[in-house]
Design a protein around this nucleic acid. Structure first.
Lengths: 258, 258
DNA sequence: CGATAAATTGACATCACTCAACACCGGTGG
DNA sequence: CCACCGGTGTTGAGTGATGTCAATTTATCG
């Protein structure tokens, strides 16, 4: 099929596969199995709802291009953004594991995604424990990221939050090749940053301006340049979490490989 | 060994196994494999550090009795509690997946735990994909819980937060048989609730008192009675996340079972 | 029964939200 | 090419909520 052929090429350096391989032992056969599991590819325009709170969702999508936000709306009209979804991330994790999605996902730029049903993914994990384990590693990364987010919102000052956010977002962008060493684009509004950090949009603006006047960053349009990495780091207290490689237990895992 | 024998009994209705079985297809052989993987059992006194931020940790512990808190300390001396660890939860998830733990875990009551090294757990997941998949389900539950936590802290008022916290904690306690329909004990101080919700201890106290005067709850010592479940629910907007059972893909998973 | 920890209460200052006005930019259609 | 327009960024003023600090009471544990 044409799809399979295109995927064969695009998956080689798909940001998702790159991420998996960074710490897990993912073989050729494993990536081939992933490729085979993918059911369709989709182009998504900006500002489309990919997952809607309260509705059933049994599909996972891996993002190859573009950005989205995962968020929850409250009865009082406020919105909390839970995560900014980058290339290499999965949409529908964890919503597809629940009866009904407990949050929504909306694209903030045009996107390209590859879709797998939960059913197929589970079957894949059955056949290839390597992939299940790699997914556990992804889950661990994501949990650590959430933990940071809670700390950020719960106990940091707005200025620290903003600094931390910039550093974390920059680090995540770099991992998937969407940023240079000191420069990156924020492809969404300050209101979204506010809903991410539990701040009002005007306050985010004040904080960004303050970081600018203190010569830690500079901003033109939506491009951010980190002028003083040390200072920003000191303020934001961002520490990247370094995952360990999946341990190889010799002799324990021979059964499942041909 | 004596250990194996005791575990054989205690694991039957170990809250962890109960949780796994609630949604995943975990066979007799699977629980037997879990039992075998467990390396030692430990009794831990209250106020002991189980995981220390910045240090390596390659051990996972499943809790069979008692409570702990997972938290992060900031340079400004503030503390954010990330999660209250109950019976059936795992300690060392996700810290054991990282070079160095990015948070600490301390017991708040006496505890009883069973320990497995990460290496053994991974080997177990290799041999028994069912268990890997069940762990993915646990990870999804935990992610949803974190997402709620972020929303709680980021966009809810302190009164709503407190109500939500009580409902969520109560629901989690009930699942492991540590609470009745309307009554439960909070086995830690209001300061800890504050560090969980991003509030100061005095303010937590004010909020609890307000919930009392509004006849939503009543408190004696550390025992909470939910007097008006409907009202509290309306205020706290707590909605339990119902996980779907692991889909069974017939014919896809035969390869790994003997 | 004493000592220590936790809960409770009050006064006060400050920070961040709200609201509102305005500037800026990019896009769109005439 | 220009004028309009919606979305976004920027700034200011005012206010209420929540943290801080401190004192006091109550509970818990040796």
């Amino acid at each position: 099929m044409a799809l399979a052929l295109r995927l064969a090429n695009s998956l080689e350096n798909h940001p998702f596969v790159v991420r998996l391989c960074r710490h897990a032992r993912v073989s050729e056969a494993d990536t081939a199995a992933i490729r085979q599991a993918i059911q369709r590819e989709a182009i998504v325009k900006s500002k489309r709802e990919l997952v809607i709170e309260g509705y059933e969702n049994r599909t996972l999508s891996i993002v190859s291009r573009g950005f989205a936000v995962r968020y929850k709306l409250l009865h009082n009209g406020k919105r909390q953004i839970l995560r900014i979804v980058l290339p290499g991330d999965m949409i529908g994790l964890p919503s597809s594991f629940f009866e009904r999605a407990s949050y929504s996902v909306t694209s903030v730029t045009n996107m390209e995604v590859q879709c797998v049903s939960l059913r197929r993914l589970v079957a894949l994990c059955h056949r290839r424990p390597n992939i299940a384990i790699a997914m556990l590693w992804l889950a661990a990364e994501e949990m650590a990221s959430y933990a940071d987010h809670v700390t950020e919102i719960g106990r940091r000052t707005p200025l620290e939050r903003t600094a931390h956010f910039l550093l974390e977002f920059h680090a995540r962008l770099r991992l998937v090749g969407c940023a240079t060493e000191k420069r990156f684009e924020i492809p969404f509004s300050q209101e979204i940053i506010g809903d991410m950090l539990g701040l009002s949009a005007p306050h985010v603006n004040r904080m960004l301006r303050q970081l600018s006047t203190e010569r830690l960053i500079s901003i033109q349009r939506r491009f951010v340049t980190i002028e003083d990495p040390g200072g920003l780091q000191l303020l934001g207290q961002f520490q990247p979490n370094i995952v360990v490689p999946v341990p190889v237990a010799a002799g324990d895992c021979g059964a499942t490989e041909p």
